[in-house]
Design a protein around this nucleic acid. Structure first.
Length: 188
DNA sequence: CCGAGGATCATCT
DNA sequence: GATGATCCTCGGT
């Protein structure tokens, strides 16, 4: 069953943990690729680590779209990261998808990543984008469409809340969520 | 296993 | 002109 817009329109700190266990599907001419979301991070309004903190710009424009919009950005000269816009439209809030447990199209992912090690396919925000061939071409698209979307998955047994990885500002905020004990989480 | 350092460039100041 | 919501490699332990 597909995830609808109403699901994403809830407050971000509710949506971010609820995304855990859902299936992220990437559809392409080569075939479907999919993984269970096992790690997320929330980037909220009034959060210095959030790309929308200083208002709207060319890069972050998609963050101000309706809930269920894909926000993808390019970083470090070589990596893409994938987010889901949440909350009410214009709030500038989004959830970063940090890791997936691969479930479908694994050979396609391995080819895109250049490794057969399943633990290295989607365990990290830039890794999963490379594995699923998500780039700036998908920035701003709706997850209500047929290219990238979410569906019901598996109910997590336990969720861990922690501080976010790689941020300089807002380091202490408990906005990172992951499925306890899952081996595909990017870092312990 | 762990930490340090480099790659590489769009975006914003 | 500086920087970054990362990843990979390499060297030490």
């Amino acid at each position: 069953m597909r995830i609808d817009r109403q699901f994403f329109a809830a407050p971000i700190l509710e949506v971010a943990p609820r995304l855990l266990g859902l299936t992220l599907v990437r559809r392409s001419p080569l075939g479907d690729r999919a993984g269970i979301i096992v790690e997320t991070e929330a980037y909220t309004a009034n959060d210095p680590a959030c790309h929308a903190y200083r208002g709207k710009s060319r890069r972050n424009a998609a963050m101000f779209g309706p809930a269920g919009t894909a926000y993808i950005y390019f970083i470090y000269g070589m990596h893409y990261c994938f987010n889901v816009v949440t909350g009410r439209e214009g709030s500038g809030e989004a959830v970063l998808i940090r890791a997936l447990e691969p479930v479908k199209g694994i050979s396609l992912m391995a080819k895109a990543r250049g490794t057969d090690d399943i633990r290295l396919l989607c365990s990290g925000p830039a890794r999963l984008c490379q594995a699923l061939n998500i780039t700036l071409a998908e920035n701003g698209i709706s997850l209500m469409g047929d290219t990238i979307f979410l569906q019901m998955g598996r109910q997590p047994e336990a969720i861990v809340t922690a501080s976010r990885i790689g941020v300089s500002a807002g380091k202490e905020l408990p906005y990172r969520f992951y499925i306890a004990g899952n081996e595909f989480v990017s870092k312990k």
